[in-house]
């Protein structure tokens, strides 16, 4: 199961697992972002291509509106997936 919570500074904390069955929940949660945004992955245990797709849609939408999206706190496993996908050069990953 995926959980999304929003911190006081607007950072969105993702936790649990972002697989294809959790895409609608992730889409709903991230559709609310409408300015410079930070996604904190430190509680996220798993992501598949379906989950990466949601992050990409969010990135493109914000980027087209002139807003940056930062991804922080990735575990090595999740960072590997982004690297395999060539997305470590697209996103700001900290």
């Amino acid at each position: 199961m995926l959980d999304l919570t929003v911190g006081e500074d607007g950072t969105v904390f993702l936790s649990g697992r972002l697989d294809a069955s959790q895409v609608p929940k992730a889409k709903d949660g991230l559709a609310r972002l409408d300015g410079p945004s930070i996604l904190d992955f430190s509680g996220l245990e798993y992501i598949s291509s379906a989950g990466i797709g949601v992050i990409l849609i969010t990135y493109k939408r914000l980027h087209d509106a002139g807003h940056p999206l930062r991804l922080v706190g990735m575990t090595d496993r999740i960072r590997n997936v982004f690297q395999y996908a060539g997305l470590d050069r697209v996103f700001t990953i900290e």
Binding site: S49, A50, G86
Partner: peptide
């Protein structure tokens, strides 16, 4: 094959999952 070197705007949608399967 997904061309992971292309800028995001030039990439066609889909194929990422199979690309990851090949890598893993």
């Amino acid at each position: 094959e997904v061309d992971t070197d292309r800028p995001l705007r030039d990439r066609k949608p889909g194929g990422l999952g199979i690309h990851l399967v090949r890598r893993m």
